[in-house]
Write a protein that binds this DNA or RNA. Structure first.
Length: 344
DNA sequence: TCTGGGGTCCTAGGACCC
DNA sequence: TCTGGGGTCCTAGGACCC
């Protein structure tokens, strides 16, 4: 048994290039409305643009300053969703268990003698069906496969085993591990741990003290390359659905803030209604100027799909949030009820 | 680096019950 | 009266991912 991690190369940009092939080879950046003078960040950067130090997450204005010759395109979520569905449909043809983990990545649990051949076959299949290029990581577990696909980019195949793990990952900074972000990296740095090797050889009790009885040992396992092998083919249903909007100018008028909360509530209810499940909770999130984010949730009991009730509850959640300061971003999230409601 | 949009999971603490 | 121990549900907030 092997785990393959299939990861599309510069997915968002690649989808855009399918319909604008004349842009191939140029620095292309996708994000926001496509206007780099407005608030927004880069969601997808072509490899050419990345050479200028622009990556996903870079503010559009910064991207413009670093790479003034780049082509800026607006986000087109519907198009990426369509492309993602075609990719996953192609992967479903491969014999094995398919676990979709995002728009542009999936695990395949496969039973084969030669995972490399299969990986190349997967690449051919995806290319043929969708015109998109992907990288494939091979491992004995998900962590190995996930990390390997990063080294395989772009368009390659890489395998990581128990034997090669530490040689490959040992010298790298801890945030190269899947699940270690900037916060954890900083906490580890405080404890004098900066590389994967150092983390792997740290006394477990020390990690338990700093990160708790669950997270401590988990971090060490991560550094040792221990990960889950279970690839689940069970269909995943979304836990929640949300919409959010960052305003070009901070909102200061209280009535305007309430109108925006109601607008977002209507939008998210309309979008989430297609699912069929009733909603169990409404969460309103506000990002206040300059940048502190707070949220407040109110349960819907019993779970409901009533639009008016959702709107009212969103407004109540907003009022309980005490949003008296200038607002930069608002979001409304609906969490689905775990049971399908039979009396609707 | 003045910082989007859409998600997931975990933990801790309060309320409430027996 | 100065007060245990456990279970469950709920929410806030932290952290991470693409």
């Amino acid at each position: 048994m092997f785990v393959l991690h299939v990861d599309l190369d510069q997915f968002i940009v690649a989808v855009e290039l399918l319909r604008r092939p004349e842009l191939r080879g140029r620095p292309v950046l996708v994000g926001g409305t496509g206007d780099p003078t407005r608030r927004g960040v880069v969601a997808g950067a072509s490899y050419e643009a990345r050479r200028y130090g622009v990556h996903s997450g870079t503010p559009l204005r910064t991207a413009l300053a670093r790479c003034p010759d780049a082509l800026f395109l607006p986000l087109d979520m519907a198009e990426y969703r369509k492309a993602s569905e075609s990719v996953m449909a192609a992967l479903a043809e491969v014999s094995g268990t398919l676990e979709v983990v995002g728009w542009d990545e999936a695990f395949l649990g496969v039973d084969t003698e030669c995972p490399e051949d299969l990986a190349h076959e997967v690449q051919r299949l995806v290319q043929e069906r969708t015109g998109l290029s992907c990288s494939v990581g091979i491992g004995d577990n998900k962590l190995h496969a996930k990390v390997a696909s990063r080294f395989a980019k772009p368009g390659g195949v890489r395998q990581i085993t128990d034997e090669t793990w530490m040689a490959t990952m040992g010298p790298r900074p801890v945030d190269a591990l899947w699940g270690v972000g900037p916060r954890t990296a900083r906490s580890l740095a405080t404890a004098g741990i900066s590389t994967v090797e150092e983390l792997a050889s740290t006394d477990e009790s020390k990690l338990v003290q700093a990160f708790g009885s669950r997270r401590g040992p988990w971090l060490r396992d991560l550094a040792l390359g221990r990960g889950s092998t279970g690839v689940s083919g069970a269909p995943r249903s979304a836990v929640s659905h949300s919409v959010q909007e960052t305003y070009q100018q901070d909102l200061t008028d209280p009535d305007e803030k309430e109108r925006q909360v109601l607008r977002l509530a209507e939008r998210v209810t309309a979008e989430a209604s297609a699912d069929g499940r009733p909603f169990a909770r409404v969460t309103v999130t506000a990002r206040f100027a300059p940048f502190d984010t707070h949220d407040h949730a109110v349960g819907l009991r019993p779970p409901t799909r009533d639009h008016d009730l959702v709107a009212e509850t969103a407004l109540r959640a907003w009022r309980e949030l005490n949003g008296n300061r200038p607002v930069r971003m608002l979001a409304v999230r609906l969490t689905y009820s775990r049971q399908r409601d039979e009396h609707l």
